[in-house]
Design a binder for these strands. Structure first.
Length: 572
RNA sequence: GCGCCUGUGGUGAAGGGGUUAUCACCUGAGGUUUCCAACCUCAUGUCCUGGGUUCAAAUCCCAGCGGGCGCACCA
């Protein structure tokens, strides 16, 4: 079997066994959309569960769930509407496509504000040349909207909305609630898993670029002045790093996260700790460590919201693919949402180490005099007095009030006081460190790394070596024959096992035992359990280990206990 | 979105205007069988969709849809 066709063979096995299939196929299919079949959906669920547990083990992270339909105002604030609605323009001569605003920088003072018709005018009046072929001649500019647009409500009350391009905004929307939940103490985080949507121009490469995809994101809120410090030296794993070329660091294939932070290649301690946890998760579910690398973004490829970005890339049939993006989003989102929404609850409070005592002089109006004197005008006079520069007061003093009158103020109407205020802390915008996982891409690479093509007695044979955390079915129960009572016992074991918490088993009674082992191996079931003649005599059965085909004999009871405890490994 | 290639059972392929479309594997039913894709019998097909040419189209032509690759795009 040639290495070149491995991708095709894997794809057809995934389709044949109900793991991953094209969506809506009976209507011709729709690119960029995929189905997880009965086997794939189990794998996806277990990966997402593992992901949720992985972060929640930390203790200061909670899970939330928010709508996929998002009002336009939210995405205007976050910058997605602006960023996602760029006008594109195509050269009539060479068919190159460009962002229309980029080519008129210097011609127009605010290229991003130009609408489609104006853009076409600017192009024809200014005789803009194609940077590729130098010709002048353009198709009409068209907005390239990478978000799916929809409307909430009907008729006049309709509001524009989009399908969310990321789950992250949900966490920002809930910041006030999260802050209360965590008793107003940083750091804390919120995770969310769910669908995200991008109307890709041309989805490619199977399930790598989808129009509807599964994301899993953590927003970890920290105090930028007191970031949590974690001991990274506990991991001695050697990591493949590709730093930003402008940083002066060289590509390196064997450095620990601890050292990468110490020497300044990773700039932020929390980013480093999130990188480590990302690595640990991928290794835990079965991604191969030598096929993982961390690549630092160059300044110009950084997302509009981020100040420091790392991609975690995984190598597979499609080459190195970004599967996790780790970004220091700083206070970008919270700050913008405060500005756009007018909400005042997107900040956190920080106590100073020592309360600051501020001494200052103020002008204190004596209202018992001002009131009777100015009557209705009094509140304007008081206002105006507070604005006075008390270092420069000469009598007679004319004060201009905000309603436009000038009044004379005498020195018995106010006094200058020295006051002392104690400031014990300040409000600030927390910074956010975000890892964003592309679940579908991770599933693809897990399947890719787990798919083994071997020879068995001269025959081609395929195995998915999925570990207990992510295997679709925990064990398959195989009656050697479906008669003599073996089928009945197998059914009883299947029922009992399926009542165990978190355990799923299946029974397979059709065709020869060898064929059933092969079927189980192909979808990554780690344990095949056979009910045979000896079972009828002494209630024992055999457990076959997928990865080396070694069999042991245990009692039904021991099997069920160890299955439940996930300790079958220990029996071998 | 452009260019080139491409679409036949669940999977992988053969066929290339003319009876009832071929093969392997897979899947299902039954038989057989004391543990690694054994064997026997049987079953399961809108040749991507829509138009056109033709007495006759899975086959030729056009368009659409899907897939692959390249260019462009990818917060």
């Amino acid at each position: 079997m040639t290495e070149e066709q491995r991708l095709e063979r894997l794809t057809s096995i995934l389709k044949r066994r109900g793991v991953i299939l094209p969506s809506f196929e009976i209507y011709g299919g729709m690119s960029g959309l995929i189905d997880y079949g009965p086997v794939g959906a189990r794998i996806k669920r277990k990966i997402i569960d593992s992901w949720i547990n992985h972060w929640m083990e930390q203790g200061d992270i909670v899970e939330i769930d928010s709508p996929t339909i998002t009002p336009e105002s939210v995405l205007i604030a976050s910058g997605h509407v602006g960023e996602f609605n760029d006008l594109m323009i195509e050269c009539l001569n060479c068919n190159s496509v460009f962002r229309a605003d980029h080519l008129i920088e210097g011609v127009h003072e605010n290229p991003e504000s130009v609408n489609s018709n104006e853009m076409d005018d600017i192009y024809s009046k200014n005789r803009i040349k194609c940077p590729n072929c130098q010709e002048i001649g353009w198709n009409k500019s068209k907005p390239m909207n990478l978000m799916f647009k929809t409307e909430i409500g009907a008729m006049k009350s309709q509001r524009i909305a989009y399908m969310r391009p990321e789950t992250a905004q949900g966490m920002f929307m809930l910041f006030p609630s999260l802050y209360r939940h965590f008793r107003q103490k940083l750091p804390f985080g919120a995770i969310q898993t769910g669908k995200g949507y991008r109307n890709e121009i041309s989805p490619r490469q199977g399930m790598i670029r989808l129009r509807e995809f599964n994301m899993a994101e953590l927003e970890y809120f920290i105090d930028p002045e007191n970031p949590p410090l974690e001991d990274l030296s506990k991991s001695s794993d050697q990591i493949n790093f590709i730093p930003d070329p402008e940083s002066g660091f060289q590509n390196i294939s064997n450095m620990t996260f601890h050292n990468a932070l110490e020497n300044g290649m990773i700039k932020h301690p929390t980013v480093a700790s999130v990188l480590l946890k990302t690595w640990l998760f991928l290794i835990k579910i079965g991604i191969k460590g030598d096929k993982i690398r961390f690549r630092q973004h160059t300044t110009d490829e950084m997302a509009h919201y981020a100040s420091d970005c790392w991609d975690c890339e995984i190598n597979g049939e499609y080459g190195w693919i970004e599967c996790v993006g780790i970004a220091n989003r700083t206070c970008h989102d919270l700050e913008l949402h405060q500005i756009h929404s007018g909400s005042n609850s997107l900040k956190a409070w920080r106590d100073f180490d020592e309360p600051q005592i501020e001494r200052k002089k103020i002008i204190s109006p004596i209202t018992s005099i001002i009131g009777p004197q100015f009557k209705g005008e009094a509140k304007f006079v008081i206002e105006a007095l507070k604005e006075l520069d008390f270092k420069n007061i000469n009598f007679p003093l004319l004060v201009e009030t905000s309603n436009g009158n000038k009044v004379e103020v005498t020195n018995d109407m106010f006094e200058i006081k020295d006051i002392e205020t104690t400031i014990s802390g300040e409000w600030f915008f927390p910074h956010v460190i975000e890892p964003a996982f592309g679940i579908d891409r991770i599933i693809w690479h897990l399947l890719d790394h787990s798919y083994k093509e071997i020879k068995k007695e001269g025959e081609d044979y395929s195995v998915l070596t999925l570990n207990d955390l992510v295997c679709p079915i925990d064990a398959v129960i195989l009656p050697l024959f479906d008669k003599d009572g073996m089928g009945k016992i197998a059914n009883e074991i299947t029922k009992k096992a399926n009542l165990l918490s978190g355990i799923r088993v299946e029974i397979d009674t059709s065709k020869s035992i060898g064929r059933r082992y092969a079927r189980a191996d192909e979808i990554g079931i780690p344990w095949s359990v056979t009910v045979d003649h000896t079972t009828l005599e002494d209630n024992s059965l055999t457990i076959r280990r997928r990865d080396d085909q070694i069999q042991i004999r245990v009692t039904i009871e021991d099997f069920l206990i160890n299955l439940s405890n996930k300790t079958i490994h220990n029996l071998f």
